[in-house]
Design a protein around this nucleic acid. Structure first.
Lengths: 365, 365
DNA sequence: GTGAAAGCGCTAACAT
DNA sequence: ATGTTAGCGCTTTCAC
């Protein structure tokens, strides 16, 4: 056995002791090079060039010893923890962890590890849950909220590169990535119009919400561009929940001239609307079309018929946030960024041309 | 300005340099004690006793300097990373992150930080996603699966205290926490019986699944104990999705003597069953009762009527797993544990006494 | 009750 | 192209 550094060490509990993991010195000894060479090889340092032969020897030695670099030692010496903090309420929201996975995968690409801090759903960003992340010296931070709104960024984060996702800093000091709500509302509505609908109802969420304002503006914009005068009675507002959708759809269906399509500002609203529609014996999409917003898999896939919806691209936004952070971490001056992300429509089964246009089509034959 | 250790340091980029965080030496100087004293105070070391006066001075100094102990240095010196790994597919599953939050909160209680590794939904436990956790030297590991099944625990985890949640090691070498499926199935069925039902349909998931076997056994057990002969035609099997529920419920409703209550083995099955029931113009729970399993908030709250269901206590299981790990981390010999967790019924609106018994009751008046 | 000093395992500047 | 060496900021034994 070669005289490895470890060999001589011994502790009191010598019996079932888990064998000490190999150190860089062990690998160096094994490969008959110096520790720094091992470090250079393993960190793939471009500045320094190592002969292919040495490089191979180091890799072999490392593999043989089952060597794994000690993250703590690395962090201490290099003053880089390679830790990325993600603060979010999505875990406790109906949106689930898709977004977190996105962040994580992207982080891995840049050799970062993700440390999560879970917020309660729609909790405001307070410092307390962030402390552990600061304690661990995360190098950068992603703050991601289920609900698109303004947040106060606590001063604790001042020194740390931060990206806000689906929320924003009203003072404009912190970078953010948000969905283009207006354009999304417009494209959703345009899609319904392209299917032949002209009486399109909107069941919106609480009107003061950022998302509600944007989606409604887009909806009205699309109607105007199509030469359709927005009818006030076709817009109803309520909660973002299924109940809001049920109540809203009921109102719309009770109109003298009910809409032929409903644009629901969330999938949960759409879910409630389905119920109101079905209760009246109407069929989706034959009698009335429904278009949702969010693309929450558990709803969209399990509704009957499956729901056509505008996707709120959490995963994409999360990835982008991490990407921007990682790219700017070395470049000393992190630029202030404010990106709007485009939402895409996901076509499923709940939208079809309106009955009238089908009749028209038929009569034209 | 007092001669703090930091003061003399200077680098080339002296301009907009983020000021170096205070070190323990800085705090020591400020409090006029030695670094080790600071360490003792801050780590609340019970072995060593420090005078209340000194203790206070240290705390004050730390606060004034905005001192935060460097986690990397701590980990390196103490050989403890205080990192807990959580490997799970729940983030990409419809179950969402509730369980992860549970793990996290419990981890904080024991001064651990959680490092997540996301698996794809129903992916088998392969080593690749775990590597980053091993690289970071997590001290313990929780493996939590959406689907209750047997998993192969890779040898990489050999040295690391590990708890399996909602899954188990068939070789019995790794501790696990699983729901008591049989008892849950039994109690769900007993509840329906207690409401007066005697013809109870079961829409089960794929029959070979651990959950399916257990829940069915419990169902049959409950019937037997109530003196009801299980009718084979009342048990249908399919997928755990809404479609399975739709198909299953349709079969049950087409029977000559349809059940007065349906026990759906998942909430998604219940969701599909709702559709089949409503399509026939039947009302829940007046005409037929439905009982789910899982308690997925987004379904149970948004179905109309809201769904009475047996809760799969992911959060509780996760907490318990972390608790057990934390408690046994010092106690050198981690005992092999295999706990079964009780599921609780969550009563909502979808279950009521059957029509017949209501008629009986009425005629008795 | 408090301090001195020796590492923990690695990185990175400098030397060769 | 490779080796030497001085820390990184803390914990912890041991001495006083």
């Amino acid at each position: 056995m070669s005289p490895v550094t470890n060999t001589s060490r011994s502790t009191k509990l010598d019996k079932p002791r888990r064998k000490k993991p190999a150190t860089m010195a062990d690998v160096a000894a094994h490969a008959k090079v110096s520790p720094s060479t091992v470090s250079f090889v393993l960190s793939d340092n471009a500045e320094i060039s190592i002969s292919e032969d040495t490089r191979q020897r180091v890799f072999d030695a490392a593999r043989e010893l089952g060597y794994r670099r000690n993250a703590a030692a690395r962090a201490l010496a290099s003053r880089r923890t390679s830790l990325l903090g993600v603060v979010s309420d999505v875990l406790s929201s109906p949106f689930g962890g898709d977004a977190v996975i996105g962040a994580q995968k992207e982080a891995r690409k840049h050799d970062f590890h993700v440390l999560m801090a879970a917020l309660e759903y729609d909790e405001t960003l307070n410092k307390e849950p962030i402390q552990p992340l600061l304690d661990m010296q995360v190098e950068a931070l992603v703050v991601m909220m289920t609900t698109h709104f303004a947040i106060d960024v606590p001063h604790e984060l001042d020194g740390i590169p931060t990206m806000l996702v689906n929320c924003f800093d009203p003072t404009g000091r912190v970078s953010s990535i948000t969905p283009d709500e207006e354009r999304a509302g417009q494209e959703a509505t345009e899609y319904l119009i392209s299917q032949g609908h002209r009486r399109i109802g909107l069941i919106n969420l609480e009107p003061q919400r950022v998302a509600a304002i944007g989606r409604r503006a887009g909806y009205e914009q699309a109607l105007k561009q199509a030469g359709i005068t927005p009818a006030p009675e076709l817009i109803v507002e309520g909660s973002a929940q299924a109940t809001g959708g049920y109540v809203g759809a009921t109102k719309l269906l009770n109109l003298e001239h009910p809409p032929t399509a409903i644009f629901a500002a969330t999938d949960r609203i759409a879910m409630g609307a389905y119920d109101a529609i079905k209760e009246r014996g109407l069929r989706i999409p034959q009698d009335i079309s429904v278009l949702g917003f969010d693309d929450q898999e558990i709803i969209t896939h399990h509704l009957r018929p499956t729901l056509t919806t505008m996707k709120l691209p959490f995963k994409k936004m999360a990835r982008r946030a991490v990407e921007l952070l990682a790219d700017n971490l070395d470049g000393n001056a992190a630029p202030l960024i404010s990106e709007r992300i485009i939402c895409r429509l996901v076509e499923r089964e709940s939208v079809a041309p309106p009955r009238e246009s089908r009749l028209e089509l038929a009569s034209q034959v």
